[in-house]
Simulated assay, not measured.
Amino acid sequence: MSETLRVPATTYLQGSPPWLLDWLEEEDQPLPRLWFADETPQTEQQVQGFEIDRCPVTVGEFAEFADSTGYRTDAERHGYGLVYTDTWVECPGASWRAPGGPGTRTDGYEDHPVVHVSFPDANAYAGWAGKRLPTEAEWELAARGTRFRIWPWGDQWDGSSANTAETYAGPLTSLEEWRKWWLAAVERSGPMPRTTPVGTFAGRGDSAFGCVDMAGNVYEWTATPSGLYAGATACDPSVRMALGRYRVMRGGSWMNFRYQVRCAERIHGDPSGWSSFAVGFRCAKDAQSE
């Protein structure tokens, strides 16, 4: 089982301050300001003490769970998982056992984060392990601490501290540049996730509380239903459609730009069985009484 780290009870301001959206708008990145608006306004959160896994759940750890319980993921039962080629597709046969689709395997990937896990899959593993999924407030606190940080290690981007698309393609400033990189990668080796072993960036990319891979590698499910910090916040229409229906995911992944792997960045996933080759999870639990 993964090492767990203790986060003490505290109060902090969750979300991004107004200047952060101004900064994003000025940066050389392709997404509109409205895309990030659901990170605002900052909201005071009182968080009880908890423990959180240092690393995302790995392929090897998930295999132990599946082998000991006979559990079949939603992707296995449905017969497909979401994979990006030149668009998102329901790839027949894609699952945590075959993350790029038929003919792909996880041999040699045992220490990589598991992917193609749905929200119910993540909860099933967490229950088996005697844990639970972290709330969104817990996840962000573990990632950045009580002081606002853009990334887990601080406010200056460091490409050697996280596994993102820029790890492979260099600095990216447009969706077209990203697309060119990804299509070339698919042509060379198929649509396999470009995950890295958990802890690859330990030391450089550690969070305020010592967690690793909280920026990039895989998106991570949280237990929190999608909602706005303030109901009147103007946001992207796709976010508005998710409210009250989806669950928040955090951390960004190996296929994202630096701006999408920030501590406060939010994305929303369908909890009814949806999974993809860029989504995993880590677990948490209530702190033990001392």
Rank of each mutant, 00 (worst) to 15 (best):
W182H: 14
L183T: 09
L183Q: 13
A184Y: 04
A184F: 07
A184C: 05
A185C: 12
V186C: 12
E187Y: 08
R188N: 10
S189W: 13
G190I: 06
G190P: 07
P191C: 00
P193Q: 06
P193R: 01
R194Y: 11
T195H: 03
T195L: 02
T196N: 13
T196E: 14
V198F: 05
V198A: 05
G199Q: 05
G199D: 08
T200L: 02
F201V: 08
A202L: 10
G203I: 06
G203D: 08
G203P: 05
R204D: 12
R204S: 13
G205A: 06
G205R: 06
A208Q: 09
A208I: 05
A208G: 08
F209G: 06
F209S: 03
F209L: 09
G210Y: 12
G210I: 09
C211A: 11
D213T: 04
D213L: 02
M214D: 05
M214G: 01
G216C: 04
G216K: 06
G216Q: 05
V218C: 00
Y219H: 13
Y219I: 07
W221P: 05
W221D: 02
T222W: 05
A223F: 10
A223S: 14
T224P: 00
T224C: 02
T224D: 01
P225S: 08
S226K: 01
S226N: 00
S226I: 04
Y229R: 12
A230T: 09
A230G: 06
A230F: 11
A232E: 15
T233M: 05
T233K: 00
A234E: 15
C235H: 10
C235D: 03
P237D: 09
P237Q: 06
S238E: 14
V239W: 08
V239S: 03
R240E: 15
R240T: 12
G244N: 02
R245T: 10
R245M: 11
Y246F: 13
Y246S: 04
M249T: 14
M249I: 15
G251H: 00
G251M: 03
S253I: 06
M255A: 15
M255I: 14
M255W: 13
N256I: 04
N256V: 00
N256H: 07
R258F: 13
Q260P: 09
Q260A: 15
V261A: 00
V261S: 00
R262H: 02
